[in-house]
């Protein structure tokens, strides 16, 4: 796994995720990267990667909406001008 720091360089984060606890994809997986969004601009995130943590908060055991809410709040907060993602290429429930 790897820590990826995504600067809030655009008005949107620009990723779509699927998955969460109690689904076939137990941890959120990136399914789309929108061109022009902060994630795309960072060049760090890729489709297919699985998000293990957001700003040090584990997504393990979190259902889809809760995981999405955590990521949305990490993007919204003015405390930081970046989001740290712990990412793995391995699509498994670690």
């Amino acid at each position: 796994s790897a820590l990826m720091r995504v600067a809030k360089s655009a008005s949107t984060l620009g990723i779509a995720i699927e998955g969460g606890a109690n689904t076939r994809q137990p941890l959120p997986r990136i399914v789309t990267i929108q061109r022009g969004g902060s994630a795309h601009n960072s060049g760090q995130l890729k489709v297919g990667q699985v998000i293990l943590e957001v700003n040090g908060v584990s997504l393990r055991g979190k259902e889809h909406r809760e995981a999405a809410r955590l990521i949305a709040e990490a993007f919204k907060t003015k405390e930081k001008d970046y989001i740290d993602f712990l990412i793995t290429e391995l699509n498994v429930a670690l």
Binding site: I15, A16, E18, G19, R24, R65, A68
Partner: peptide
């Protein structure tokens, strides 16, 4: 484990 995995529903997709 595999059988259980297959019975789990697909996830919704959220754009962030």
């Amino acid at each position: 484990v595999r059988e259980k995995r297959l019975t789990l529903p697909p996830s919704e997709i959220t754009m962030l």
